[in-house]
């Protein structure tokens, strides 16, 4: 009987205690915000969409190798000795045309592993997080500053250059076999003109 009355009392009392707490919270300001109108300021280190500063990219492929989900695809073509590829912000001379630098954000897991190995700090995470798309393909970002045609052109240039170099080498070797010394100067001149 005592147990019975105690149960009744506890049942009513604990309910009242709970009601007191919830009632108190009616007058506490809300902690939520009206999202698209009000936004939380993001901290400095926030990890969201990647950005690649192509001016600094030297095409070293380290970020692509660090990526655990293989969402970065990089293709490079060697620049001709005559090409002016510019220099990176920390003073290194670039040697490769980056014909393709794609990041598939549908795959990206925002782990930031690609950011650390970059020697020129050209790939980094930004604070943009609203980039949803209706089609999965739209999440495929191309960062390369060269268009596909330009890329093809660079590739052709390089192949041509390579072929000529080979040819010259062969020719040089041939000439070397015949008469070694005087021809050397000529061949370097030739390669220069071929490059242009």
């Amino acid at each position: 009987m005592r147990e019975y009355l105690k149960n009744t009392w506890l049942g009513i009392w604990t309910v009242l205690v709970g009601m007191k707490i919830t009632f108190k919270h009616l007058f506490i300001p809300a902690v939520t915000i009206q999202y698209p109108d009000v936004k939380v300021p993001l901290p400095e280190r926030v990890r969201n969409r990647l950005y690649v500063n192509m001016d600094d990219c030297i095409g070293c492929d380290q970020c692509a190798r660090a990526c655990p989900v293989n969402c970065i695809t990089i293709e490079t073509v060697k620049g001709l000795p005559t090409d002016d590829l510019g220099i990176t912000s920390n003073g290194k001379k670039k040697a490769l045309w980056v014909t393709k630098f794609d990041i598939d954000f549908a795959k990206c897991c925002y782990c930031q592993l690609c950011v650390f190995p970059c020697p020129t700090e050209c790939i980094y995470m930004t604070d943009i997080y609203e980039f949803s798309e209706f089609k999965r393909n739209d999440l495929h970002y191309n960062f390369s500053t060269l268009s596909t045609d330009e890329g093809e052109e660079k590739k052709l240039n390089w192949e041509k250059f390579q072929a000529e170099k080979e040819a010259q080498k062969a020719a040089a070797a041939k000439q070397k076999a015949e008469k070694p010394a005087p021809e050397k100067k000529e061949s370097t001149d030739k390669s220069k003109s071929a490059g242009e």
């Binding site: 604990t14 309910v15 205690v17 709970g18 707490i21 919830t22």
Partner: peptide, 9 residues
């Protein structure tokens, strides 16, 4: 604790 843990229900 007051709101949930010690609630009779």
């Amino acid at each position: 604790n007051e709101l949930l843990s010690y609630n009779k229900i």
